[in-house]
């Protein structure tokens, strides 16, 4: 159906997909808070939340309800507009990345081929990179507008940390791009579907990317911007009610998206071994692929939590040394070796 030279079915399909992905991100983020507390408890030989609902499964709802009904406090000497802008940017940027991630293969519904990806742009990786580099603004603006020295310190830490770790992340991705020869995430997944997972070809690149993903999500051991015991919570120190919730929520969404990205780039995305020899219908394979992709994501979310409850926080100078003097040279070496090998294979 086309009207006003717009394919309305296409529009509806995309809107459905966008809302689906958004709801999925939010629900996963919500239950990541529950998962985080459970994993933390289990690692520390405790039980974790088990009062609200069976296994404490209603705990995220209780937490969310609490955050909604808390009194909202805006400090008198803060910049009101920027104070509200900070968490909004953090939340928006966190949700934006999911647009280019291929959640599954194409499915066919009523004669229409629907791609389970919101936008297959030919610069997918760069898009993610651009959005991730925006993520720091939420923290910086929020921290500065709070007019509090701890928040300001956290903003400054966040800014320098994210800029420092974007470089090795980009360099690790460049090595990956040399192998795949494309920036489109969908094509990267399709290549892995018919070949081997990229992690086998780029183990060092994967490690660097993983470490940088931790840093970009402000997760332990790189949680200096919120360092509870030095900065009283850092950039969200002055925040209360749902604005605090947005900041915390954005971190969990970032974690979800980072896990999705790691799974897509290095672990075959929605593809799985013997995918093409199962002999099922296209739709069934696509749905199973989505399910397996989801399992991969959940595993990496678990890794994020597992690391958090194992490794203590870096000191600031250690953080900078790791970024600039270890990861960047390593990433450069990885890039050079990959380039040389790609050239060798071509000749």
């Amino acid at each position: 159906m086309t009207l006003l030279s717009i394919d309305w079915f296409y529009l509806v399909e995309k809107i459905l997909l966008i809302s689906g992905v958004l709801v999925l991100s939010l629900v996963v983020a919500m239950y990541s808070t529950w998962g985080e507390r459970k994993v933390a408890a289990w690692i520390q030989d405790r039980l974790g939340p088990n009062r609200a609902g069976p296994m404490g499964l209603l705990q995220p709802l209780a937490d969310g309800g609490k955050l909604f009904f808390k009194e909202e406090i805006i400090p008198t000497h803060s910049n009101r507009f920027l104070f509200i802008l900070g968490p909004s940017i953090a939340m928006m940027v966190a949700c934006m990345t999911s647009a280019v991630i291929p959640w599954g293969d194409t499915i066919t519904v009523a004669g229409r081929t629907v791609s389970l990806q919101v936008a297959d742009v030919n610069i997918g990786i760069l898009f993610i990179f651009g959005v991730v580099s925006m993520g720091v603004y939420g923290i910086m603006i929020g921290g500065w507008a709070s007019n509090n020295k701890y928040s300001l310190l956290a903003s400054i830490r966040a800014a320098s940390q994210i800029i420092s770790y974007e470089l090795p992340m980009g360099l690790a991705l460049i090595a990956l791009l040399m192998l795949t020869g494309t920036l489109s995430l969908k094509e990267i997944v399709e290549q892995q579907r018919h070949g081997v997972w990229n992690v086998c070809l780029q183990p060092l690149g994967f490690l660097i990317f993983l470490i940088c993903a931790f840093a970009e999500c402000n997760r332990t051991p790189f949680d200096l911007p919120e360092a509870e015991n030095e900065l009283n919570g850092g950039y969200h120190l002055e925040y209360s009610s749902m604005k605090l919730g947005f900041f915390l929520f954005a971190e969990y969404i970032n974690m979800f998206i980072s896990s999705a990205l790691i799974a897509t780039l290095y672990f075959g995305g929605y593809s799985f071994p013997w995918m093409d020899s199962l002999g099922w219908g296209e739709n069934a394979i696509a749905l199973l692929g989505f399910f397996i992709f989801f399992l991969k994501i959940l595993f990496f979310i678990f890794v994020f939590m597992w690391v958090r409850w194992t490794i203590p926080r870096f000191r600031y100078d250690q953080l900078m040394r790791l970024g600039w003097r270890i990861l960047i040279p390593l990433a450069l070496a990885n890039m050079l070796i990959t380039g040389a090998l790609v050239l060798l294979r071509q000749h």
Binding site: V39, A41, W42, I43, Q44, D45, R46, L47, N50, W306, V307, W309, T310, I311
Partner: peptide
């Protein structure tokens, strides 16, 4: 060292819990 530490925490994940509900 990091992997050793992660192994230790993973072991604790499956330990009997000390909490008395």
């Amino acid at each position: 060292a990091i992997f050793t530490g992660m192994g230790i925490t993973l072991k604790h994940l499956f330990r009997r819990k000390a909490t008395v509900a």
